[in-house]
Write a protein that binds this DNA or RNA. Sequence first.
DNA 1: GGCGGCGGTGATACACTGTAACAAACCCGC
DNA 2: GCGGGTTTGTTACAGTGTATCACCGCCGCC
Lengths: 161, 161
Amino acid sequence: MHRHEGHAACHADADDMLARAEAVCRERGLQFTPLRRDVLEAVAESGKAQGAYDIAERLSAPGKRVAPVSVYRALDFLMEQGLVHRIASRNAFIPCAHGHAPGEGVIFLICRSCGGVDEASSVEVEGGLGRTLERAGFTPVHSILEVEGDCGACRERMQAP
Amino acid sequence: MHRHEGHAACHADADDMLARAEAVCRERGLQFTPLRRDVLEAVAESGKAQGAYDIAERLSAPGKRVAPVSVYRALDFLMEQGLVHRIASRNAFIPCAHGHAPGEGVIFLICRSCGGVDEASSVEVEGGLGRTLERAGFTPVHSILEVEGDCGACRERMQAP
DNA sequence: GGCGGCGGTGATACACTGTAACAAACCCGC
DNA sequence: GCGGGTTTGTTACAGTGTATCACCGCCGCC
Ligand SMILES: [Zn+2]
Ligand SMILES: [Zn+2]
Ligand SMILES: [Zn+2]
Ligand SMILES: [Zn+2]
């Protein structure tokens, strides 16, 4: 199970993310182009899930426009390499700092107050889900598990304003 | 745990669904209007998840057009009453024949081959998820769990064509 | 050097999904 | 009949994602 440790830590993570991404791409013989780098950085810098159009706007500057379609292509690439996750319930994207094992289930903890998204995993949930699917005669290919609620920090902030 | 028993059973379910929906609305003092009835019927008749625009098109006839916005409103109502589920990973809707207990988690089994969606539930998964969230200091409000894969019928069909 | 394939990007247009705002119709109790 | 809440129609718009084609840069090959 993994937790973000606050915005400072997230920010520090951004550089790590970029270094790791470059290593992953080099290792797999893929190109970590400037656009892909910028998109990943934009996703990693903000502590919350970013929409593709938000990223496009953030990367655009007067005179240099980045079209959403380019962002989508970069995101597709980054998702294939496991560097970014898509949050289906938000139509948004987050960076992934954990090299997940293939087939490992991920639980997204989405805070409705601060918009932050943490990742967790649980062998208990995974095992139970596997048994449930087997009983149902269903062969899984991939699954999404997203929980919306209040993160610890926001809950404390609400109790003692 | 629940399984569809094929298209014939789904079709038979449609009438039951409508009767149950009418009973639920009467009991809660809500209106089960013709539009809401038609939308629920459209969702229930097809064995697969339907998009809002698909439903609008299906309900439209030459001379009588049903706008998507009307379908969305009916779907919102039906979802509030627990008669319809939204499948976030598909932007689509399915009927629900099981009166879920409040707070009960639902697992959607989405067949990538036939497009059918079954519902399952598992106290094991639910308990494991609850403990995982508690460890993470996260207070859940609601969660979605959707699994894409191959249903039993489609897997058999693929093995022996 | 020239050439052709290949992956990445730019640019435009388009399809699909969902919501806001306002007016008209409907229902129901007074 | 009247007033007020709910439902529906209609239009317009915002947000999300994809198709298509052209262009560029790179690298291997002739
Ligand atoms: Zn991850
Ligand atoms: Zn929070
Ligand atoms: Zn259900
Ligand atoms: Zn199937």
